[in-house]
Each structure stands twice: as structure tokens, then as C-alpha cells.
């Protein structure tokens, strides 16, 4: 027996960059289209619209996701962060600053997705997640440092048609080093006397 027909539209409340938005959506609408067309948050870009290029990457509950394959109606109750929510006022996030300083882009179209992805890469690495570039994935082997090889693998879901990859890898490397120095400074007994290379060994 076929179930009774269900509505094809719903009113949803989405939390984007800390702000709640209540709006009616056709269930077919992706989170990407809501961000761009309804909330005027056009930083998130539509590339392939098939989950293959990463231009639409946002953070959902702190984890990176492609917003083109995320139905908006299914995102209700999640915390969404877009590129517009990354900086603190006029102060760029260190990952954004690294992309600027090291020319981690050419035309810039893929950049919001690259930056959102890079933010998550740093968190995933800090949480001890291995990658396909990690030789020994056993927990006893520890977390490998974010080498260029690790960065390339972890960022492989973000394509750049301009081919700015060399600078993108450098920018993520710089941001990772800044992250590491910051946490070394925060650690009890840690700080300035720990050279960058030593802290790299400590986590390796």
C-alpha cells in the first residue's frame, strides 16, 4: 500500500554563521542554492554541482561537507559555517591570511572551498585522523606531520582549474605551522623554547 502523499515543501530554520534563518524551501533545494540564492551568501561557489570539485565546501557542525549534495531541508538543526563566517570581523583567519600571503589562488573561484577545506584539514589532523598518504595508520604509530604529501592528499577533494596547487599546499603548510606554534605556546611548559622541528618530531 502506498503511503499518503507528503508535502514537497517545508519551512526550515538554518543556522548559518551563528545566525538563524527561517524560510520555506522546496525539498529539492540544496544547501548550496539556499546559501547563494536565498541568503545572499555568494562566497560559497557552485562548480560542478555533483560533489566532485569542492568549490561549495562549507563546515556543517564543524566538519567539511559539499553543500551541493546536502539537501537544505536535511540541514535543519545543524551549525553551518561558510567562508563569510571564517574571519573575525576585519581580522582574517590565519588560513585566509596564509592564502593571501602565499598566493594560494589565481582566479579565486575555488578559494572559499579551499579555505573551508583547509580549516577542516587542520582540525582533522589535530584530532589524529590518518589519511591515505599515511604509511602506518595504527594508532600506536601516532599522527604523521602535515607534510606536503599529507596536505595534497587531504586537500584532494578541492580542485583548482588554474592549477595553483603549489601555492595552496604552501599556504596550508604555513597555516599548519602557525597552528602548531600556537598550540605549543598554549601547552604547559611549552612555548618559545621549542623549535618548530622538535614539535614536529613530537607529534610524529
Amino acid at each position: 500500500m502506498a503511503p499518503a502523499p507528503t508535502a514537497t515543501h517545508s519551512v526550515v530554520t538554518l543556522t548559518v554563521n551563528g545566525e538563524k534563518h527561517t524560510l520555506p524551501v522546496d525539498h529539492r533545494t540544496t544547501l548550496l542554492d539556499v546559501l547563494r540564492e536565498r541568503l545572499d551568501l555568494t562566497g560559497t561557489k557552485k562548480g560542478c554541482d555533483q560533489g566532485q570539485c569542492g568549490a561549495c565546501t562549507v563546515l556543517v557542525d564543524g566538519r567539511r561537507a559539499v553543500s551541493c549534495l546536502q539537501l537544505a531541508v536535511a540541514a535543519e538543526g545543524r551549525e553551518i559555517t561558510t567562508i563569510e563566517g571564517v574571519a573575525e570581523g576585519d581580522r582574517l583567519h590565519p588560513v585566509q591570511q596564509a592564502f593571501l600571503d602565499l598566493d594560494g589562488f589565481q582566479c579565486g573561484y575555488c578559494t572559499p572551498g579551499q579555505i573551508c577545506s583547509a580549516l577542516a584539514v587542520l582540525d582533522e589532523h589535530a584530532a589524529g585522523w590518518p589519511s591515505a598518504a599515511t604509511d602506518d595508520v595504527r594508532p600506536e604509530a601516532g599522527v604523521p606531520p602535515l607534510t606536503p604529501e599529507e596536505i595534497r592528499e587531504r586537500m584532494s577533494g578541492n580542485l583548482c582549474r588554474c592549477g595553483a596547487y603549489v601555492s595552496i599546499v604552501r599556504a596550508v603548510e604555513r597555516a599548519a605551522a602557525a597552528d602548531r606554534d600556537a598550540s605549543a605556546a598554549d601547552a604547559p611548559g611549552g612555548g618559545d623554547d621549542i623549535p618548530a622541528d622538535a614539535s614536529k618530531e613530537a607529534v610524529a
Binding site: G51, T57, R64, V66, A120, P130, G157
Partner: peptide, 11 residues
Amino acid sequence: LAGASGQLRNM
């Protein structure tokens, strides 16, 4: 880890 991308593996 050999499959898809970090974004897709999260979803």
C-alpha cells in the same frame, strides 16, 4: 581513506 574526499567521507 582511499575513497572519495574528506568532504564526502564526512557525509
